[in-house]
Design a protein around this nucleic acid. Sequence first.
DNA 1: TATGAATGAGTGTTCATTCAT
DNA 2: GATGAATGAACACTCATTCAT
Lengths: 216, 216, 216, 216
Amino acid sequence: MKMTQADTLHDASRTKRQQILDAAYTVFSRKGFHRATVDEIIALADTGKGTVYNYFTNKEQLFYTLVTEKSVPFEHALGEVARSPQPVLMKIENMIRLFLRFYLDNGGLWRVLMHEMRGFGSERYSALSLEQREKHQNSFRETIGMLQMVLDEGIQNGVFKECDTKKAAYALFSVIITMVFQNFIDDDIEDTAHMIADVFFYGVAKVEKAQSATNG
Amino acid sequence: MKMTQADTLHDASRTKRQQILDAAYTVFSRKGFHRATVDEIIALADTGKGTVYNYFTNKEQLFYTLVTEKSVPFEHALGEVARSPQPVLMKIENMIRLFLRFYLDNGGLWRVLMHEMRGFGSERYSALSLEQREKHQNSFRETIGMLQMVLDEGIQNGVFKECDTKKAAYALFSVIITMVFQNFIDDDIEDTAHMIADVFFYGVAKVEKAQSATNG
Amino acid sequence: MKMTQADTLHDASRTKRQQILDAAYTVFSRKGFHRATVDEIIALADTGKGTVYNYFTNKEQLFYTLVTEKSVPFEHALGEVARSPQPVLMKIENMIRLFLRFYLDNGGLWRVLMHEMRGFGSERYSALSLEQREKHQNSFRETIGMLQMVLDEGIQNGVFKECDTKKAAYALFSVIITMVFQNFIDDDIEDTAHMIADVFFYGVAKVEKAQSATNG
Amino acid sequence: MKMTQADTLHDASRTKRQQILDAAYTVFSRKGFHRATVDEIIALADTGKGTVYNYFTNKEQLFYTLVTEKSVPFEHALGEVARSPQPVLMKIENMIRLFLRFYLDNGGLWRVLMHEMRGFGSERYSALSLEQREKHQNSFRETIGMLQMVLDEGIQNGVFKECDTKKAAYALFSVIITMVFQNFIDDDIEDTAHMIADVFFYGVAKVEKAQSATNG
DNA sequence: TATGAATGAGTGTTCATTCAT
DNA sequence: GATGAATGAACACTCATTCAT
């Protein structure tokens, strides 16, 4: 297949854009949003400063693009599992597996994202514009919403106890991300996923509910 | 009214120092370490710029002081419960209660602290000096270590299943903090603590272990 | 007119850099290192603050660059005369001439330099980093060392009396610099150089050594 | 003799004032005018910050007072020798001795003074107010004027050649001060004074004037 | 389209000076 | 008179962003 000049240019520019995104990924992950400098990004991307501003309107939008490009395929994959016809318990464990893989790959960047969004839940100040923060927050909520959906399904099926599934979903999510951020996944994603699921499903107590701390 | 000159002076200076600490608390919580400016702090504290540097050597040490002054009494209280002779399940629930109260009060600042410490566990870049970051990380680890201690005790007593108590402690901690950061504690700290403990102890599944997700 | 884009850019940047150096020269000379502000330099250079820091790493290095760029050609010229095959007395007088010209041009800056180096000889506090202070001190010592070299040559040739040539070199140097700093060179460099040489060679006394001050 | 309370107070305050002057002397000498801080001075003087401003209107005036208190007795002593009936050559050597002693004691401070006065001769910017700078410059000029006076006397007596005595006086002065600032007075003030006088009177050349560099 | 020199608003920090006690 | 807490003007330096080439 022959490549026209236009194609070449387009490819070259696509490359430049990707170089910048790759470099930005590395630098933002390592340094956080504020400590990351455009100078360091272009040094790593081997490009000029102006080029960054040809492709991205500003540092913030570069960060935003980065996050979006990473999260879209993940959310898609997660949705597929959530809507699949597997048994609920298996679905949850498979979703945990997806989460673990995703955050193992992108933990550095997401830590930064969460901080800029103020813990993915609240209002107030940030480096991101209100609009973009809301977009990410919605994306986050949807992600966790998928967990919640499956939990709801489980309750309807009689697999799970009645409970506040929103809280439960967030709890599960927080445990997953903590395992990643604490580097607790030495062995194997499969094992870790199974362990998390196990505790989430059955708890840590050996004894029966009757002995619960507050119920006399 | 009795008040010697020395008292007055001491009180006045205590006031200024406290005004600055209070203002810094607010601004750091809202903006994070980097986006918080000394100018904004002094505007809120209604004081001069130089005054800040009379009481604190620099912005970092101001932040450090803030965190330390808040965490010391909390850690003390937590230790007391951990070492108390209550039943393990009750201890855990009481500790959860303490955590909830503490992070409800200080969540804003701690979110910032955790980010500056890089997710309370890893190495790399930060606004805080290595020394102070290590101090805070140790403080964090000790806090969670107290949870782990009680979990270990529970295993020895046959109350908990055998498990990696370090991971479990972090998991429990992450759930607590997530409930706070998500504003999931509208109702009552007591209820929330009980609910968290309940899920942590017994899980969300209704059915027996035999049906675990990975077993066909 | 031939001028490639590269030329233009290079010229433009050379111009900016030179504008800054020129302005810095003026301001440092007038105000000394500490009282000179970057703001004043950029006002005079008609440039932005950031531009200064594109070309120079900090205020100190700007000062250092200034001094170095001025002193290197001077030291070279001085060395040429010192090593030339002229008669010693003529050499000295020619070197005095070079010194006079150099300090007439650069006296303002060198006064500052000497102060920052603490009188071009000792240790202790300064605005310059130890490394750069040592560099300048060595440069100074070499300069005066060339005078000393020629004095030594003169003693070997029987032209000068036996004496501590290091002290004599510093003495000669100090006289030169004082004439400049006192604006005693209204008339002509040639005349002044000759006069200095004359007093240095033959002294001010009319009478013979026998009546030396300490001999009754 | 009995001391009233007023006396005691006066003495105490005199002490305070002196403590400050002593401390200021040390700090100014070591650090220069700008790098010297009032904080460091009061730390050394063991007094409060406000006390400094009770005795001196500002940092500059403190420096000025210091210099004046040191120079007045020196100038007096120098004048006595200058007006004494000794032979001219002996007078000069004795004056050199006084200069050496004075600058050995106070060289640190005077180096700073000279810098602030811009080489004790020119106009322009400084930390000292114009008025005070002029006072010091006059003081300086008078000091050197005494040397000049004696040189004039020597010419009238036929001891010295006809020459520009102002320039000669400055030259002699610069040599003296250079010997001090270069730490060239290891052995003995007497020896050094004699050596300086010797070179000043008779020069360094062995040969006769006829061979002077420029006079064919 | 790619570039990087130029820019200036913004920031942490210092330090002489004041003034209430 | 002695004190030192409070103050803010001043300063060096950073870095995202622009724009001429």
